[in-house]
Structures are given as structure tokens and as C-alpha cells.
């Protein structure tokens, strides 16, 4: 994380990839404990990653990384459970046996980020999709939409910020 904060994008990418399985396991455990279906764990993982990203300036470079990371993860998990608590859910006990028989899916798809993506302004959505889905670089995206690289960066950052805000309010 220190390298990432110092501006090493590669190190940051590696770090996020490494913590994701840990976050996923934590999200599944949390959902299971709350009696919620584990198929929402990926939505929670993505919310945690967005929060980690947008709040990484609150990490003190001299403080240990893990307590900070898990504090955010716990906050987002509680948030997600609280939100889901307001909705009606089928009792998981009814399906307990079927679930136990079914092989555990290695990764379930996440729908919430994708759904909120559709509500973003067109330009932000295009930039985000270009970089996320089509794996274009900032430079390639700038050329495709005839924007400056700086404008692409700003649009990308705004897209991520408003995506996070929309997830929080949803």
C-alpha cells in the first residue's frame, strides 16, 4: 500500500487483487452469519473496494494496513446488511439442503454496480466502461472520445465517486 500511495499503479493493482479473496471470504462469512444468501457477497466486495479506493487518503502511511482495511470492510458489510434488512427475503432455511448439495460457485456475479452504472451521465459511463470492460488505457480512452487525458481522469474519478454515492443511497 505504501508503494501504491507513492504512485505505483502496478503495486496498487496487485494489492487490490491480493486483498479481494480475503474480503470475499469475510463478506460470505458475514452474510452467512446474518442468515442472508451468499450470492450477494460480490456486491459487498465491490462496495468495499470502492470505499477502500476513495478513502485511501485516510490510511496513515505509518499505521498497519490490515486494521484499516478490515474496519472499512466491516463498515460496508454492516451497511449492506442493514440495507438488505429492509427488503423481504425468502427464508434461507427452506433451501438449506439444496444449497448444501450444490457445489459452491467460485465467484458469483455482482449486479449492483452494473445496475447503478446505467444511471451515470453518458460521458462518465462511456469512460468507465471503456477502461473497466474494454480494458483500454487512459490514453486510448482519451483518443477514442477525443478528450484530453486529464478530462478522462476527471470523468473516471467522478464516475467512481458518484457510483459509490448511489450505492450508498440505494
Amino acid at each position: 500500500m505504501q508503494q501504491a500511495v507513492a504512485g505505483d499503479d502496478e503495486a496498487y493493482h496487485r494489492l487490490l487483487r491480493q486483498v479481494t479473496p480475503v474480503l470475499r471470504a469475510a463478506a460470505r462469512r458475514g452474510l452467512a452469519r446474518a442468515g442472508q444468501p451468499a450470492d450477494q457477497s460480490e456486491d459487498i466486495v465491490q462496495e468495499i473496494l470502492l470505499a477502500v479506493h476513495l478513502k485511501r487518503h485516510t490510511w496513515d502511511v505509518n499505521a498497519p494496513f490490515a486494521p484499516w482495511l478490515f474496519a472499512i470492510a466491516r463498515n460496508k458489510l454492516i451497511d449492506a446488511l442493514r440495507r438488505r434488512g429492509r427488503r423481504i427475503f425468502v427464508n434461507i432455511d427452506d433451501f438449506a439442503e439444496t444449497l448444501a448439495d450444490a457445489p459452491a460457485a467460485p465467484q458469483v456475479s455482482a449486479g449492483e454496480v452494473a445496475a447503478q452504472l446505467q444511471t451515470l451521465p453518458q460521458r462518465q459511463r462511456e469512460v468507465l466502461q471503456s477502461i473497466a470492460v474494454e480494458a483500454s488505457s487512459i490514453k486510448q480512452t482519451a483518443e477514442r472520445f477525443a478528450m484530453s487525458e486529464g478530462a478522462v481522469r476527471v470523468a473516471l474519478h467522478r464516475a467512481l465517486s458518484s457510483l459509490t454515492a448511489k450505492l450508498r443511497e440505494s
Partner: peptide, 22 residues
């Protein structure tokens, strides 16, 4: 959007630095 795609996007946004809260 799957999680790998999200992670790639966040890494691309790493240059955007926020000022300290203080």
C-alpha cells in the same frame, strides 16, 4: 461489471489523490 474489471479501473484512477482530511 465483474470484480477484476472494477479493480483494473480503480488502479487506473490511482493518480487521483485526495488531500488529507486535516
Amino acid at each position: 461489471m465483474d470484480t477484476d474489471q472494477l479493480i483494473r479501473t480503480l488502479a487506473a484512477d490511482n493518480a487521483q489523490r485526495a488531500l488529507p482530511v486535516g
